[in-house]
Amino acid sequence: VGIMEPTLVRVPKCASTLGIAVEGGANTRQPLPRIATIQKGGSAHISGQLRVGQVILEVNGVSLKGMEHRDATRVIAEAFKTKDKDYVDFLIAEFN
């Protein structure tokens, strides 16, 4: 349904926040987390690759499919917080 090829986007942790607002999750009208806004000055804004409206399929290889909002956002927050990596990998789907 208008879904484009998933794209891997690597966001370096170049600011103190990731700087995205996310909506959606299992059992809501938006079953996969969707980027609602991008905050100026956050890592996502600075790296310039994420866009409002994109849907996040995976974070560091972890699928968000079937996860409720709270769990999906926790996965994203922990991926940004962990000191194991200085980046977060997002598998993104675009809709046209």
């Binding site: 926040t17 990731l18 607002a21 996310v22 909506e23 809501t28 609602a36 806004t37």
Partner: peptide, 15 residues
């Protein structure tokens, strides 16, 4: 389709 319409909106979380 009807079932889809009854699903609640999601909250938004700033990360």
């Amino acid at each position: 389709r009807e079932k889809r319409l009854t699903l609640p909106p999601s909250e938004i979380t700033l990360l």
